[in-house]
Design a protein around this nucleic acid. Structure first.
Lengths: 171, 171
DNA sequence: GTTGAATGGTTGTCGCTACAACTATTACTG
DNA sequence: CAGTAATAGTTGTAGCGACAACCATTCAAC
């Protein structure tokens, strides 16, 4: 028995929306990455890792949680954290409650790095996304991205983060 | 003289929209890549290259044009096309008009590959983007992505593409 | 309380991409 | 019509991420 499934192609509006979204997907990460590399010597992913830690209680997270929140595999995270550790931005220590687990904690230098780096990053996000959209469009984008994430990230693992980094001594 | 520039942080709506968009940026490419790797043995970028060629007159493009349309550096494209050539999906030949230039052309096998692969790719795009949005949202997304691309891709280099691949002998 | 399975991480290897260096052809400039 | 600059592309090297293999610890079963 031969089964033929006819493809539902995209109409003009659908195609147009997808092509544009695909272009954003292709270009925006590179722009964010370039700015961070240039101004802070950090990959976007490295910055993301530091930012997640800076939001966590005691600036500490278990590797597994961190991997989940950053959409990284454990091996990848392990490599990245090792490099950040070599640079003195993060430190690792065994988790007291579970001897299998490892905690990653921001060092004071790492915390400073995040606070120094955040403004430039936010400015870039503003320049290319926030400030080119109307308040109405921002609301729409919220709903649109939310719908898309419904299938991509049903548990909302990546929804944390992106707070403010004030100049106050205590975060 | 010391200059202090106070950062304009994001308000709640802005932050929410950005976090969600960032999550989509992080997750969607992986999903597209996985499907293509699994079902066609192609990277998303490789598929993109083949797709661009399939849209071009005579299924042929100069390396530079192809690089521009796919947002790739020339070295990267050179490596990728070499691999595709080894697999028999693409062939390279010197450009008649300019002896410096190289043309890349889809082979019949490459053209078949694109037509075989397109339906699954479109289905994935539908599943995660098109079909989870209302027609109204698709229109909104069009305008939003357009605004963002205004700063990212002012010349519209990536705006081509994503047509249909019918079963008819001639494309 | 052992045994087997599941969890939490690390390390090693391969493939892909960025960057730099290089070659070859064409376009400017006087 | 030289000589220089700009364009078009390839190749080599280094770094990052995916995947597999591996070790250690905890949990589950009986």
């Amino acid at each position: 028995m031969m089964v033929v499934v006819t493809t539902r192609w995209l109409d003009e509006t659908q195609l147009s929306a997808w092509v544009r979204l695909a272009a954003v997907l292709e270009l925006l990460p590179g722009v964010l990455d370039s700015q961070l590399r240039r101004d802070a010597g950090l990959t976007h992913f490295e910055y993301y890792v530091l930012a997640m830690l800076s939001e966590a209680p005691d600036h500490t997270l278990r590797m597994t949680s961190l991997a989940l929140q950053t959409n990284a595999t454990l091996p990848r995270l392990s490599h990245v954290v090792k490099r950040l550790e070599d640079r003195g931005l993060v430190e690792r220590f065994p988790c007291p409650e579970d001897a299998r687990a490892t905690n990653a904690r921001l060092t004071p230098e790492g915390w400073n790095k995040v606070r120094e780096t955040a403004p430039g990053h936010v400015a870039t996000v503003r320049q290319h996304v926030i400030d080119v959209l109307t308040p109405e469009q921002l609301t729409q984008l919220n709903a649109i991205a939310d719908s898309i994430l419904g299938t991509l990230d049903p548990d909302g693992n990546l929804a944390a983060l992106y707070h403010r980094y004030d100049a106050s001594p205590e975060g």
